[in-house]
Design a protein around this nucleic acid. Structure first.
Length: 376
RNA sequence: GGGGAGAUUCCAGAGUGGCUAAAUGGGGCAGACUGUAAAUCUGUUGGGCGACCUUCGGAGGUUCGAAUCCUCCUCUCCCCA
């Protein structure tokens, strides 16, 4: 994996670049659709490639390990072959599930004992085990196994959690270096900065990770319910410490506004369930603001879903029809909305990239941010 | 023609003397959603939007008090001829 910066925005820390992987290049800043269980919910691979123009998607170690399981994934020849996505894939390590499935796990220095949310069976995840699983999945970018602390979180807990994450990280790197990719393409390992909302912990964690010289670095433990200003504050602190010549990944973020702010702080990669989950729940993001397509106000609005978009379905279907699909609980509604939202998110980062290269990102951001954030 | 059951708030459907503006479900309306246990979850749904007023087929009656009891009327459904 190789990261090249093409241009730095003169008035912010935003930068445009590209990442080269064995499955193709990724232009940054980039948004990565989330495909937890090996599928970006409600969206076909073909649409993801041709309509959304997604460049990289996510998978999740914990979920894929439980189902379909490693025998199936290895039998298929890795996740790329299994789901037909031949572009880059990033796998989250299951660290977020340490947080989201908090009531069914136990954390020790050794690792985490999980109880499966599917059948209640117990599983032990250690850093070594997670590296092995991510090797079996075959992601181009593997995330280190971390603990994502909740918010709010006492400082003592946050410090201890950060130290555990750092200890696990050392073991991840060591095991990563001892093992080989299984499918002939190279894999990179990204460590994850933690430290909750405490500036000194965040600095300590970022400095710890900056020294390791990994191929890319991630900021975790944000977007877990903390005030947005705190998220921005932590992101900024960490970005200023992480190496400039390596991609920075802000995990789990976020709204269009969050992404624009993140880019201006120097973040290169984002992922979030919001475009797909909110899409399934009837909410769409557009360059003119956010719309709840279930609302009565669209009932007789026969104009295209998004007339400024170049996505076929945005022009083909009307707002009234999309509202009807949601009212009738038709599966096509979530499909159209998810596709639309992903297309918009990818459009947004592509536009941002264009303006970074044109040296007017900050101006453009100031202009578009209030517009995309409003409710229609 | 004979016998029986029933009419409840947008719909379906509980309720059978006061705790009932009325269960529950559906529908409607609105909100939430940030490394996905999510095609999910939450709120609200007579009016005035205060301690107030009008509701449970219609009219009358019993009672301190009725959606709930009585009388008549209207309509619906079922069974037997």
């Amino acid at each position: 994996m190789k990261f090249t910066i093409q241009n730095n925005d003169p008035k912010s820390n935003a930068r445009a670049g590209f990442i080269e992987t064995d499955h193709g290049n990724i232009e940054t800043p980039i948004f990565m659709p989330v495909g937890t269980i090996g599928s970006v919910k409600a969206v076909h691979i073909n649409d993801l490639k041709d309509a959304v123009k997604a460049q990289i998607i996510l998978g999740n170690t914990y979920h894929l390990y439980l189902r379909p399981g490693l025998d199936v994934l290895e039998g298929a020849g890795g996740l790329h072959k299994f789901n037909g996505w031949d572009r880059p894939i990033l796998t989250d390590s299951g660290g977020f599930q340490v947080f989201s499935l908090a009531h069914r796990r136990k954390i020790t220095n050794e690792g985490v004992t999980f109880q499966s949310h599917i059948d209640g069976s117990r599983h032990l995840f250690t850093p070594e085990r997670v590296m092995d699983i991510e090797r079996s999945i075959g992601a181009d970018i593997m995330m280190a196994f971390d603990e994502c602390p909740p918010y709010p979180c006492e400082k003592d807990y946050a410090r201890n959690s950060m130290n555990i994450t750092h200890g696990w990280l050392d073991r991840c790197i060591s095991h990563f270096n001892k093992t080989e990719p299984k499918y002939g393409h190279s894999q990179a390992l990204f460590p994850i900065v933690q430290g909750s909302v405490y500036t000194d912990l965040r600095k300590e964690s970022a400095e710890y990770i900056a020294k390791l010289g990994c191929e890319g670095n991630a900021i975790g433990g944000v977007s877990v319910g903390e005030p947005i200003d705190l998220m921005y504050e932590m992101t900024e602190i960490v970005c200023n410490i992480l190496p400039k010549d390596k991609p920075r990944y802000l995990m789990g973020v976020g709204t269009p506004a969050n992404i624009l702010e993140g880019i201006s702080m120097g973040v290169d990669m984002f992922d979030c369930v919001m475009p797909t989950r909110n899409g399934r729940n009837g909410m769409i993001f557009t360059r003119n603001g956010m719309m709840n397509m279930k609302n009565e106000k669209w009932k007789h609005d026969f104009s295209p879903i998004d007339s400024e978009s170049d996505l076929y379905s945005d022009l083909q279907y009307s707002k009234a029809y999309l509202r009807h699909l949601f009212s009738a609980n038709e599966i096509l509604g979530p499909m159209i909305a998810s596709l639309h939202n992903l297309h918009f998110y990818l459009w947004l980062v592509k536009e941002a990239r264009k303006h970074i290269i044109a040296n007017d990102f900050a101006t453009w951001k100031a202009q578009i941010l209030p517009i995309v954030s409003q409710k229609l």
